[in-house]
């Protein structure tokens, strides 16, 4: 099996963008628009209009000026595709996709069955992982979804390594038998699909099954159905990703706090010291250093959970009538 070396593809790129290429237009952090470049068309977004003509012939990664701001034109990857998908409900995100691909042991040459196709987010990630000589069979009961993803695969140069199938795997099983290396399930009743999955996997090579469930009860039933179908090493894993925010770090001394309040550098009022404040040396000593904080930055308040841990570590000397609590206040 060979891949077309000409034409648009997620797998190969020319140095410069051509008509028909899928590009990811990076508008701002968190806002990316996937677009198939076509002469005569215009992309409308936050920063105004961008004519596709301007995109064609540019290098990947180029910064382009739209009518009301700048955007970057990026090469599509499965990660960017997932993040920029317009249908953002119920799709599997990068952390889950990565975990699923790892658990399925997807690699070039792997044959994988998937159900349901859904938004095609994971389908793209799997197809790219098994390329160029593997294959993805993706099943869905919804014909319109299947057609849509089939169209995307064509546009993205992935047609030859993918086969979208309209089929209910819970009742009718998979498109292949005794053939694949891995089965991924994201269906409402995985227990019905699991015996079929066992038959789809290669008898000689063995294979892996991964079932994604949004709720505990499905997980419980899927686990026992897997054991009953002869699968071993059944494990249940939940991926909890955390994103950190990197912020400019601001360290105040207590004197500075008393003088300026809980102000971040930009807000700090530049007042002349009138002798009242003692030991005031530097306004923002560490303002240029960065620090990572969890994405849920506190709004100036200590959250309850932290506070209660604090209280318990401190022990009896707090919330106790005999011991007194000294509180420093501005």
């Amino acid at each position: 099996m060979t891949l077309a070396t000409k034409g648009p593809s997620f797998l190969k790129y020319n140095e410069r963008i051509e008509e028909g290429d899928t590009v990811i237009v990076y508008v701002t952090f968190g806002q990316m628009i996937p677009t198939v470049v076509k002469r005569g068309q215009t992309l409308m977004m936050k920063y105004g209009a961008l004519r596709h003509e301007f995109i064609i012939g540019k290098r990947w990664g180029q910064c382009l000026s739209a009518s009301a701001g700048f955007v970057y034109i990026l090469r599509p990857t499965s990660d960017l595709w997932t993040r920029s998908l317009p249908r953002r409900t119920q799709i599997l995100y990068t952390a889950d996709c990565a975990e699923i691909i790892a658990l399925l042991d997807c690699k070039p040459g792997s044959v994988i069955c998937e159900s349901g196709t859904g938004s095609g987010s994971l389908s793209h990630a799997i197809a790219l992982a098994v390329a160029p000589n593997g294959h993805l069979y993706t099943h869905d009961i919804d014909e319109s979804r299947t057609k849509k993803v089939q169209e995307e695969f064509k546009t993205h140069g992935l047609s030859e390594i993918t086969t979208p199938v309209v089929q209910n795997v819970c009742t009718d099983g998979f498109f292949v038998t005794n053939a694949c290396d891995g089965v991924f399930l994201d269906v409402p009743a995985p227990w019905d699909a699991i015996p079929h999955a066992a038959r789809a996997l290669s008898r000689s090579r063995g294979g892996r099954i991964v079932s994604f469930s949004p709720c505990m009860e499905q997980v419980q039933r899927a686990c026992l159905a897997m054991s009953a179908a002869g699968f071993v090493c059944v494990e249940t894993i939940e991926v909890v990703p955390e994103q950190k925010k990197i912020v400019g770090q601001h360290r105040q001394t207590l004197e500075e706090f008393e003088e300026l309040g809980d102000a971040y550098p930009k807000m700090a009022k530049k007042r002349d010291s009138d002798g009242k404040v003692v030991g005031f040396t530097q306004l923002v000593p560490h303002a240029n250093s960065s620090a990572a904080v969890p994405e849920v930055a506190p709004e100036g308040l200590i959250v309850d959970e932290d506070f209660d841990r604090i209280r318990d570590v401190v022990g009896p000397s707090f919330r106790n009538q005999h011991d007194r609590v000294v509180v420093l206040i501005p």
Partner: peptide, 25 residues
């Protein structure tokens, strides 16, 4: 490294951490 990359105009910077929870069913 983040500061270094920001200075060179890199985009879509993300710092992530991840926990894998194993459930015993």
């Amino acid at each position: 490294a983040y500061d270094w990359l920001v200075k060179r105009g890199a985009i879509n910077l993300m710092l992530t951490d991840q926990m894998c929870r194993i459930l015993q069913v």
